[in-house]
Design a protein around this nucleic acid. Structure first.
Lengths: 235, 235
DNA sequence: TCTACTCTTTGGACTATACCAATATTTAGG
DNA sequence: CCTAAATATTGGTATAGTCCAAAGAGTAGA
């Protein structure tokens, strides 16, 4: 089982510091030659390391060493930016689209609204150290937040806007974590090849009054996060 | 991009009910021929479906259609068996080992104990409909539960034993969710090929008095679960 | 100095084939 | 009829290439 040796050799180089976080690995052809094997086998080893979160791939750009994952608590209101800063990471957010639309069947169901209701849809990519690691789409009940889109969603966090301008805060969060793979536009924006494994977090948020406010769906580069949380059991 | 067509064709057959949950797909060579391609490409498509959780592989046995995932709430004390039964699934647990050992460095750290402390280590595999989907290892502070191993850990849930015989209950749970891949014995027990992507849940549990009781590490077949939970934010 | 075009390298995708060992199946024997 | 040995099938792993398009590097021109 040659690919095990290749894996181990690469892991060793990472742990010895010969390859450091975010560094690009040599070209596949060169690595294959170095390990005296073919590209197919080499790629098998690399894919396995990718599944383990040790390396990641950027589409048509090559393989890179994964940095430490950021720890993420979906039960905190703490937004991405603050979460990253608290962990000495460099966050950046890019607004892809923010518009008022008619709810798709899927969105309507999650928001518990009749089909074709008015909602806002906000698409964003979030970066850590200039690497795109998260694609989020928010679906928001428009009736609760008139003129939300007039406010600058690219600079301010949604939770801040909710609180400051509408007096609404999250009180209860339902979330669902699954794994899937990246496809199409999402893959592209995350600089991933279609089929790259990913972590999917879906959240539905309720306000102080128990009212459903919004929901989101988050596609994470799976090597970039570790989901960490604490649950207190009310007895 | 041929593998996309193969993927879609298989997904279609699953959704049309021509292939049903837990059913074995035809042999790779036959599928490759049917799609007029090579095994390499065919396997690429299947691996992608595996990453998406639509099919799973049993080592040297072939590819199978994934059933609906079981929903799992790590913040509930509800044990595996009851969780499964509540969702009309057939659970089964197999005890692999239950012994008193000296804490490894890793276990000691997680249990906040000095190295070489006495702990119990319990290894189990858990099945759904006779498919092994979870490999759990529990590390338990031995001082808190004298003669724990005398009790039948294969029949009774740990939480029940804690409560009934020692008056200890979970009050607070820290958990961490990451993705990784299955290797060695764990892969074997789960009938997986080494390198199969997996979901890893690590929990650390504290009692009513805030004392650290035990911790565990869970390796899940990632297509077999969806982690669902609710967080109440205390304001 | 900056931009636009060209050339080279590289990753993505695919073909064709081979060997081995573990399964699964069939066949032979008690 | 059941068990054990022989056989066929199948998945796991690997080799040796090929073609293409995108990315990156280098070059020439404004």
């Amino acid at each position: 089982m040659q690919y095990l040796k290749i894996k181990d050799a690469i892991v060793e180089q990472i742990e010895d510091g010969m390859l450091t976080a975010r560094q690009k690995l040599p070209a596949e052809r060169k690595l294959a030659e170095a390990f005296d094997t073919t590209r197919v086998t080499l790629r098998e080893a690399l894919s396995m390391l990718e599944a383990e979160g040790r390396v990641y791939r950027e589409d048509r750009r090559g393989w890179f060493v994964s940095p430490e994952p950021m720890s993420y608590d979906p039960t905190q209101t703490l937004n991405f930016t603050n979460m990253a800063l608290a962990q000495q990471r460099q966050p950046r957010t890019e607004l892809l689209a923010a518009k008022q639309v008619l709810a798709s069947k899927h969105a309507a169901k999650k928001l518990e609204l009749p089909p074709f209701s008015d909602i806002y849809r906000i698409d964003r990519v979030r970066y850590l150290e200039e690497r795109p690691v998260l694609y989020v789409t928010n679906f928001i009940r428009a009736e609760l937040f008139p003129d939300l889109l007039e406010r600058d969603c690219s600079q301010n966090s949604l939770t801040d806007i909710y609180r400051e301008h509408y007096g609404v805060e999250y009180q209860r969060i339902r979330y669902r974590i699954t794994t899937s793979s990246l496809q199409g536009e999402i893959a592209q924006v995350l600089r991933a090849t279609a089929g790259t494994p990913a972590m999917v977090v879906e959240r539905i948020n309720y306000s102080q009054t128990g009212e459903l406010i919004d929901c989101d769906i988050e596609y994470w580069r799976h090597d970039a996060i570790s989901i960490d949380s604490i649950a207190e059991l009310s007895v």
